[in-house]
Simulated assay, not measured.
Amino acid sequence: MSLPNETFYPVGSLDQFMKQVGRVIDLNGVEIAVFQTSDGNVFAIKNESPHPKGGPLAEGMVSGHYLYDPLHDWKIDLETGNVQAPDHGQVQVYPVKIEDGQVWVATSEFLTV
């Protein structure tokens, strides 16, 4: 889904994103965790846990299209950013596209890269 004012930025080649391992990218001070799942899909979320105590998400474990928060073990849907019950919350997700082996992440935030 694309939003008005959304701009895609190149963040690396697909082979730079290991399957089931998060990689942090920085788009003008915004830390984004990018994950390639075992089925080859790529997802991008803000690298910030929605847990009240916060923490990074890039080091979490990926299973299917879910991420397990490394500090709080919350299960987060990588497609929607929704935290799964019994916990609740949501992580900012960013649209991703892959063109010619290049991974692009979109944001509507003002960025200069």
Score class of each variant (00 low, 15 high):
5 N>Q: 14
8 F>D: 03
8 F>W: 00
9 Y>S: 06
9 Y>Q: 10
9 Y>H: 15
10 P>V: 07
12 G>H: 11
12 G>M: 07
13 S>R: 14
18 M>Q: 13
18 M>S: 12
19 K>H: 08
19 K>I: 05
20 Q>A: 10
20 Q>L: 10
23 R>W: 04
23 R>F: 04
24 V>Q: 07
26 D>N: 14
26 D>R: 11
27 L>Q: 03
29 G>S: 10
30 V>C: 06
30 V>S: 09
31 E>A: 11
32 I>P: 01
32 I>D: 05
33 A>V: 04
33 A>P: 06
36 Q>C: 10
37 T>E: 03
38 S>G: 05
39 D>I: 06
42 V>L: 02
42 V>S: 04
45 I>M: 04
46 K>S: 11
46 K>C: 07
47 N>D: 12
49 S>Q: 03
52 P>C: 01
54 G>M: 00
55 G>W: 08
56 P>H: 08
56 P>E: 13
57 L>A: 00
58 A>S: 12
58 A>P: 02
59 E>M: 13
60 G>I: 01
65 H>K: 14
66 Y>F: 15
67 L>I: 06
72 H>E: 01
73 D>L: 14
73 D>M: 14
74 W>T: 00
75 K>N: 03
79 E>N: 13
80 T>F: 06
80 T>S: 15
83 V>Y: 00
84 Q>W: 00
85 A>N: 04
86 P>K: 01
86 P>E: 03
86 P>A: 06
87 D>L: 05
87 D>K: 10
88 H>S: 14
88 H>T: 11
90 Q>W: 06
90 Q>Y: 05
91 V>R: 02
91 V>C: 07
93 V>C: 10
94 Y>I: 01
94 Y>S: 06
94 Y>L: 04
94 Y>T: 00
95 P>V: 02
95 P>S: 09
95 P>G: 10
96 V>T: 10
96 V>H: 04
96 V>M: 03
97 K>W: 06
99 E>D: 15
100 D>N: 15
100 D>M: 11
100 D>G: 15
103 V>T: 08
104 W>K: 03
105 V>L: 04
105 V>H: 01
108 S>A: 15
108 S>N: 15
109 E>K: 15
113 V>S: 12
